[in-house]
Write a protein that binds this DNA or RNA. Structure first.
Length: 470
DNA sequence: ATACATACC
DNA sequence: GACTGGTATGTAT
């Protein structure tokens, strides 16, 4: 057994992380990820991760893609240098106009909430095996961890971290196999409750729900405080907009009532799921509610407020990475000159730059988000959004054996076809996705004249592009 | 239409 | 030795 030094968290003194070198950079996302505790021993953690990652094909691939991103960012910077005074001025003018227009239309009459379970999979497993409660637990396997409980997080174990690294960080780490059927059942219990408050609630994933509470809050205000969600059969039939809104229930009043209601929802969910906790965000739209849901995690809730001042003072200091849609790459592209990640206020103050660098759509999107506006202002396109794609993928041992690859493809197509049949879905474009042992991802697709769904059709379509090229 | 990148959980 | 799987969307050609 390799006797790797464990960071030993609970008693461990906050060793000031020797801000690790280059090799660490690529995977430093793990030790940094949100949701973690204060980083005790981060230096140690990074060291172990770096050690295990160096010379792996995966790390090589990450470094390569990192370099590519750096090149792109450098190109953007050049582009900015070369831009002339006129272009800059007109970009600034456009931004100023947009900001004014957006501010003029800030609304205070809507209330959204995002509710998600804390360390969902792990919480379910620990609920069912209470002896795990004070142990470090990871749901997943040696290949990949999907959720870690808070005890494990103190050792630096994170979601989306490969299991063998988790194990090196914490040798007592208990692995539990995921049981998706069970999580789906639990999620359904919660969703039934959510629907009492918003029949049109949507699910972001198994453990995350988006609720527009506006109608419910008005109903509450009208009918007087009382408990319960109002027997759903009662007065919320399909009519839609019909609710009279006599009360001027806006802004902070909306938020105050929403706080109570969300507290009630979370208590009911906890009760109905035998103790599972949730965190929630409340705000004037889903974007803000979503960001706010991260603030009081675990087992808490936070409301952004409705006024421009409240919203901006909430958003301004946040790292841009907290904004949904801004990932590793955009964070880097918008980083400050000294390389440090920008805060949302800098996104805003440099909005004109973004307009010069990105497509108008991307620039708009960034600007809207940095002002706390929901993307696209989508008023729900009537019908429930139809599914755009369906897929089935598996990672397996590298092989060059064509028969073996063919058999794998056959199995994948068969299970995909089964799933499509069950959900009554078909599709016109079939994409074959391949991953090499170097972690290079390739896709090849071909579109049919009419939708297909049968296993044989999928398989035939999948190999079609291969026979032509390569 | 195709290929690939990015992002989220 | 081991670094997921499912879905959506953006960008370039």
């Amino acid at each position: 057994m390799p006797r790797s030094p464990s960071p030993s968290p609970p008693a461990g003194q906050p060793s000031t992380a020797s801000d690790a070198g280059d090799a660490v950079k690529a995977i430093y996302v793990f030790a940094n990820e949100k949701g973690g505790m204060t980083d005790i021993n981060r230096g140690k953690i990074n060291e172990i991760i770096a050690q295990l990652s160096q010379s792996s094909a995966y790390t090589a691939k990450l470094l390569k893609s990192d370099r590519r991103v750096d090149e792109t960012v450098a190109l953007l910077q050049q582009k900015l240098q070369r831009s002339d005074e006129g272009a800059r001025r007109s970009a600034a003018a456009v931004v100023a106009r947009q900001v004014a227009a957006l501010e003029a239309s800030r609304r205070a009459d809507r209330c959204c909430a995002v509710i998600d379970f804390d360390m969902f999979y792990a919480a379910v497993e620990i609920r069912d095996r209470p002896e795990l409660a004070d142990k470090p637990v990871a749901v997943g396997g040696i290949g990949m961890i999907s959720t870690a409980n808070y005890v494990a997080r103190r050792w630096g174990v994170r979601s989306a971290m490969p299991g063998f690294i988790g194990q090196a960080l914490c040798r007592q780490l208990v692995f539990v196999r995921p049981d998706f059927a069970k999580y789906t059942a639990v999620a359904e219990v919660a969703r039934a409750i959510f629907r009492e408050y918003d029949p049109k609630m949507t699910a972001g994933s198994l453990d995350e729900a988006y609720l527009d509470l506006t109608d419910h809050l008005h109903k509450r205000a009208r009918d007087g405080g009382g408990g319960g969600a109002g027997d759903d059969s009662g007065d919320c039939d399909g009519g839609g907009e019909g609710e009279r809104r006599g009360t001027a229930l806006t802004g902070e009043a909306l938020g105050e009532l929403a706080g109570e209601v969300v507290g009630e929802i979370r208590a009911r969910v906890k009760e109905a799921t035998r103790g599972l906790t949730t965190s929630a965000g409340i705000g004037p739209n889903f974007l803000l509610a979503k960001i706010a849901a991260d603030v009081r995690k675990p087992d808490g809730q936070f409301c952004t407020g409705w006024s421009r001042e409240a919203v901006l003072s909430f958003l301004a200091p946040l790292p841009v990475r907290k904004v949904p849609g801004v990932g590793r790459v955009m964070e880097k592209a918008r980083a400050r000159k000294d390389g440090a990640a920008s805060a949302v206020c800098e996104l805003l103050s440099r909005a004109a730059e973004a307009r010069l660098l990105f497509t108008p759509g991307s620039a708009d999107s960034l600007l809207r988000k940095s002002l706390g506006w929901e993307e696209g202002g989508r008023e729900e396109a009537a019908g429930e959004a139809l599914q755009k794609g369906i897929s089935c993928e598996r990672t397996f041992r590298p092989t060059g054996d064509e028969a073996e690859l063919g058999e794998t493809l056959r199995r994948l197509c068969a299970s995909l076809a089964e799933e499509m049949a069950a959900r009554q879905l078909r599709g016109r474009t079939v994409t074959l996705k391949m991953k090499t042992s170097d972690f290079d991802l390739l896709t090849r697709d071909s579109s049919a004249a009419r939708p297909v769904g049968a296993a044989e059709e999928l398989q035939a379509r999948a190999v079609m592009p291969l026979t032509v090229a390569d």
